[in-house]
Structures are given as C-alpha cells and as structure tokens.
Amino acid sequence: MEMIAKETTKPRELISFIIGKQEFCVDIMSVREIRGWSPATPLPHSPAFVRGVINLRGAVLSIVDLASRLGLPSSEPSARHVIIVAQVGSQIAGLLVDAVTGILTVTPETIRPTPDVASEMARSFVKGVLAIDNRMITLITLDHVLPSQELEAA
C-alpha cells in the first residue's frame, strides 16, 4: 500500500455507500453525480451484473449492479436504490448501490492495506480499508467495473 501513500500525500475525499450490510467508498473525483434508480433496459448477452442501460440526459449509460459485481448477494432494485454515476476510464457507468452514506475526508495514513483474503473481489477491486468510528469501510477502484474486456475475450 505504499503506492497509495505515494499517490496522495494530501487528505483525500471519498464517497461512502452501503451495499447490503457492508460499507464501501470510492474517490470523489471519479463520481459525476448521484441519482435515484430508474428502470433499466436489459442488454442481451450481457453478464448478470449488468442491469441494463438507462438514459442519462441523452446519453446511454450502462448500470452495473455493484453488489453482484463484488460477489455480494444482490436484491431487486427499487426506488430506494441509488445510482452513482462515475467516470470509468473514458466511459461513464452507473453503479447501483443501496444507499449513499456521506463524504469522508481522510489522510493517506488512515487507509490500511487490504486484509489478506483470497477473493476475486479483493484482488480486482479493493485498494484498502478504512476504520472510522468502529466502521470498516472498503476503498474500491472502478477500473474493472465494466465488462468490456471480458466481452471482447468472449
């Protein structure tokens, strides 16, 4: 985790959210906006974690069910769910989460290394964990959220 320490010497801001009973966060710089759930149009031949596409002011946006993407049990989305619109590389994607909890301002020291758990999620997405007020918040990266490479390989 020296890498993160090097990347950021100043305090950074993160957006935290809940999926199921776990709390996660992403860098605020990659978040474009937060909006309510609206029904998505399913895409044929797409992985299960892709909920479909929605219309975001004229652009077609794919919705990734983050629970399913991270290997957590996912639930049927309702109006109470939230979509975090985030920049993923050159593309924009909507991330379906249960609720957004707030903005965290943390110093790099607060971010602890990923516990040594042999899960796919830990390897592809987790960048570290934070301990704040007895809560454990997992910092994730969005680089591999979209299935583009997998699709091309298929």
């Binding site: 029904p39 998505a40 149009t41 895409l43 044929p44 031949h45 797409s46 892709v50 479909g52 596409v53 929605i54 219309n55 004229g58 652009a59 077609v60 946006l61 794919s62 593309q91 924009i92 994607a93 979209l146 299935p147 583009s148 699709l151 091309e152």
Partner: peptide, 19 residues
C-alpha cells in the same frame, strides 16, 4: 459507454425517456 452487444446495432431513447 459500454461496448458492443451482439445482435444489437445501437440504442435510442423513446418518448417515455426509456432506452
């Protein structure tokens, strides 16, 4: 914002705002 989908050429937005 996504990638190629087999069998689908493109998308459009209908009058009700859905894709």
């Amino acid at each position: 914002n996504y990638g190629h989908v087999p069998g689908i050429a493109a998308a459009t937005i209908l009058g009700d705002g859905r894709v």
